[in-house]
C-alpha cells in the first residue's frame, strides 16, 4: 500500500467515522442504525488485507470513541478484530468472490454487535442484550443495503491490489 493509498484510506475512514457519529447514529430504522463506518471498513479490509483492515479498524475505533467521548479503546478493540478477520477473509477464501462483501457485512454486523455487547458487559456497563438481538435483523438489512454503493465507492477510491501483493498463507488452487 502506497503512502497516497494510505492517505486516501485514512480520509475514507475519517469521513465515514464522522458521518457515522454525527449523522447516521441518529437515523433509527426499525430500532437499528445503519453503520456506514462498519461497511466502509469491511470494504477497505476486503480490498487491502488483514493488516490494513486491523489498522483501519483501530483508527476508526479511536475516532468514534473520541468523537462520542466513549470509553477510549473499546470500539477500537472490536473494530480491529473485525478489520483483521475480514481482511483475512479477503486475502483467502473471499478473494474475487462477488458475494464476499455482502457475506462479510452480514456476518460482521452480527459479530460487531455481539462483540460490543460482550465488552460492555465485561466492563460492567449497560448491555441490553434483548434490544441488541431485536435490532440485529434490521441492522443486517440496513448494512446490506449500504454495501453495494459503499463497496463500489471504496473500490473506485482504492483500486484492488494485485493478488501477489496480498499476504496469503492459504494456497489458492483455483
Amino acid at each position: 500500500m502506497t503512502l497516497f493509498d494510505g492517505v486516501k484510506a485514512a480520509a475514507l475512514i475519517f469521513v465515514a467515522a464522522i458521518a457515522q457519529v454525527s449523522v447516521f447514529s441518529e437515523a433509527h430504522v426499525f430500532g437499528a442504525v445503519p453503520d456506514v463506518l462498519l461497511v466502509s471498513l469491511v470494504a477497505f479490509a476486503l480490498l487491502r488485507g488483514s493488516v490494513s483492515g486491523a489498522v483501519g479498524g483501530f483508527f476508526a475505533g479511536i475516532l468514534v470513541d473520541t468523537a462520542s467521548l466513549g470509553t477510549l479503546g473499546l470500539t477500537s478493540l472490536v473494530l480491529t478484530l473485525a478489520g483483521y478477520w475480514i481482511g483475512r477473509y479477503g486475502e483467502t477464501t473471499g478473494r474475487d468472490r462477488a458475494h464476499a462483501p455482502f457475506l462479510s457485512v452480514a456476518v460482521v454486523t452480527v459479530l460487531y454487535q455481539i462483540g460490543l455487547l460482550v465488552v460492555h458487559f465485561v466492563l460492567g456497563e449497560s448491555a441490553p442484550a434483548g434490544a441488541v438481538v431485536r435490532s440485529l435483523v434490521p441492522a443486517i438489512v440496513l448494512n446490506l443495503v449500504l454495501t453495494a454503493p459503499l463497496y463500489a465507492l471504496v473500490r473506485r477510491l482504492l483500486r484492488p491490489v494485485e493478488r501477489d501483493e496480498l499476504t496469503a498463507e492459504v494456497q489458492l488452487l483455483g
Binding site: S50, V51, A54, V55, G57, F58, G61, I62, T71, L72, G73, L74, S76, L77, T80, L81, Y84, V119, L123, T167, E169
Partner: peptide, 25 residues
C-alpha cells in the same frame, strides 16, 4: 515473515486497545 508481522500488528493493536480501555476505565 509477513504472517509474523501481520500477527504482531494485530496483537499490538489489541494490546494498545486493551491498555486504552484500562486507562480510560
Amino acid at each position: 515473515r509477513s504472517a509474523l508481522i501481520r500477527r504482531a500488528v494485530v496483537v499490538l493493536l489489541v494490546l494498545v486497545a486493551l491498555t486504552l480501555i484500562t486507562i480510560s476505565f
